[in-house]
Design a protein around this nucleic acid. Structure first.
Lengths: 349, 349
DNA sequence: TTGTACGCGTTATCAA
DNA sequence: TTGATAACGCGTACAA
């Protein structure tokens, strides 16, 4: 007895083929390469598709072809403007090539990365994109077993799987420290949010404070819990002023924190940069516009997304088997603005 | 001649079955309901899965079951904090239920919505989420033909497909206008970004300016091109001051624009709220913290995402066939802060 | 150029 | 409870 399923009265390729009076394989061929079928049947197929409102079943296609036009992307958080900019750029580029972006966010929770990667793998993705290059053993195993190129973004270091596009956060921290030393910083603090789980913010902090230490300056580090936000920055400044009233320079792990510092300083009548120098990280849309404009590190978030997408598309569409791992330093730029102005001798005690 | 393909040396369910010395059906059953197999073979299957590192192929599963655990989401832009907050909330909730979020952004380009929906449909998604309730004919046709619940978010109006979670932007605009009238606004302007394509910003503008008109006040509308940003706001304020030097109150379609207005006012020594009142929309993280704190409309972005996800999961998991369309007014709240303070008579000319 | 037949890795059905 | 087997809808090698 025949077991009829086919509950889904979906329009299939066979339906199109029947209506166009050709075989299903001709329809399949037409869909992938319209010029490959004879000019006589092409219009018939085209019309049948339109009349029936045929939508190809990607699932079946992917299963047959053993490859899915989907790319899994793991970011820590979408609330973070850095990552949403990168994701937006990637999505746009993937879309151009007909690839679908699968999105997952860890919210900095340990173990979530492995879960998300596992989920993505069950979709047989064409490629995987993860954030950072530090992963737990489970994630590493999963990524290694993936028969798809793996891109790591926003950070350099460790051994790359296939592609790594990012920059050294440690150096970014160093660059800010160097600048602050040049302008005569003496009493220095660093504000970072959740630096135990945000390893990149922690790296920037390390780069900054070690550089300072080499110059004989001990940095007061304020590691606040929760998301980076202006409120975080404002509270942190209040704390710092309590413990270190003569602070003259503050670096922040994120521009939104720095913005909060600027607001709090303004409320307290603390002049920036005359009495307090402030630097951030991210070069967010407000950083150029705020008062005073904020010295910061520009990480090229969009460029990272674009590079990854392009490089992956290239690898996927021209599968020169066994490609070498590739590392791309997307770099960063220290953008010096009015919030860090030279500390005049006259203003020092 | 047998055609051996099976180039993909992927670990399949059969491999697991062979190793556990059971049938593939039992493995499948175990995966969906571990308690349904006898306690004798369950551990064998479990071990085989772990040893072989088996990852189920969702594609095959979805094809067979004729349902995919994927939900397509279309937003205008990820750069917009509103939508990224909503998407983040949805993704988290979907993930909890084992559903994958497919993401697409239109970047406010006409026609992109239909393209994205079409792409999603070919994935046979469990549900679709789109932004707003105004869609071109092509999109409407596609959505109607979808055998999946369709949720529209961030806006109310039109006839809902299945679910609509949002609020009236027109009323949000009215609420701001009402407040500004109460505090004695006389010379009024509205700044919006790209209001031809951002229909919701346009609605807020309409609600605002019509309310003002009813009170006999003609609103100067500044519709700037490009994304909403602080720079946009700063430039717009400069423009407004040129054409309308005695402006006393400005409403903005977005808090980031309002932030730019505050910065520009500060640079010009224009005291807010004493000389100029400013209101925004969005209640972004900085809005409470900036100087002065910003009066704004809070749209409950996270709540919208959560409501949609929960409602969809419910519909999907308890398919009481032919559910009624449902409209949920997520509401908004006018948050009055220092940036809009009563205009004292003594300060008027 | 077009058609035939098989296989992709699962789920669902039904018999044992 | 377990296992054999037929779909699911399409890609593709190969024959016509």
């Amino acid at each position: 007895m025949p077991r009829s399923r086919r509950s889904t009265n979906r329009v299939t390729m066979d339906d199109v083929a029947a209506r166009a009076r050709v075989s299903a394989s001709s329809v399949s061929l037409f869909l992938r390469n319209p010029d490959a079928v004879s000019p006589r049947i092409a219009p018939r197929i085209k019309q049948a598709i339109e009349v029936l409102g045929y939508v190809p079943n990607l699932l079946a296609g992917s299963l047959a072809a053993a490859r899915t036009r989907a790319i899994g992307v793991v970011v820590p958080s979408l609330g973070n403007a850095f990552f949403s900019a990168t994701v937006a750029a990637m999505q746009k580029e993937f879309d151009r090539h007909g690839y679908q972006l699968l999105l997952g966010a860890t919210e900095y929770e340990p173990g979530r990365e492995a879960d998300l990667v596992r989920t993505f793998l069950s979709w047989s993705p064409t490629a995987l994109v993860v954030t950072g290059c530090r992963h737990d053993d489970e994630t590493r195993t999963l990524l290694r077993s993936a028969r798809a190129p793996v891109a790591e973004m926003w950070e350099l270091g460790e051994q790359p799987f296939d592609l790594q596009v990012g920059f050294s956060h440690y150096k970014a921290g160093e660059a800010v420290a160097r600048h602050m030393l040049e302008i005569g910083a003496k009493r220095v603090a660093f504000i970072g949010a959740r630096m135990k789980s945000d390893v990149r913010a922690h790296q920037r902090c390390e780069g900054f404070s070690r550089s300072m230490l080499k110059a004989g300056i001990d940095v007061h580090i304020e590691n606040v819990p929760g998301d980076a936000s202006p409120k975080t920055g404002a509270h942190a400044l209040a704390d710092i002023l309590r413990r270190m009233p003569d602070v003259d320079s503050i670096a922040c792990s994120n521009d939104v924190i720095a913005l909060g510092v600027l607001f709090e300083a303004q409320r307290r009548g603390l002049a920036v940069p005359q009495q307090l120098r402030v630097a951030g990280f991210g070069d967010l849309p407000f950083s150029e516009e705020c008062v005073p404009p904020l010295t910061t590190v520009q990480p090229r978030a969009t460029q990272i997304g674009l590079s990854i997408a392009r490089e992956l598309m290239e690898r996927v569409e021209q599968p020169a088997d066994e490609q070498e791992p590739r590392i791309v330093d997307s770099g960063f730029e220290l953008v010096i603005r009015a919030s860090t102005q030279r500390i005049e001798a006259s203003q020092e005690p």
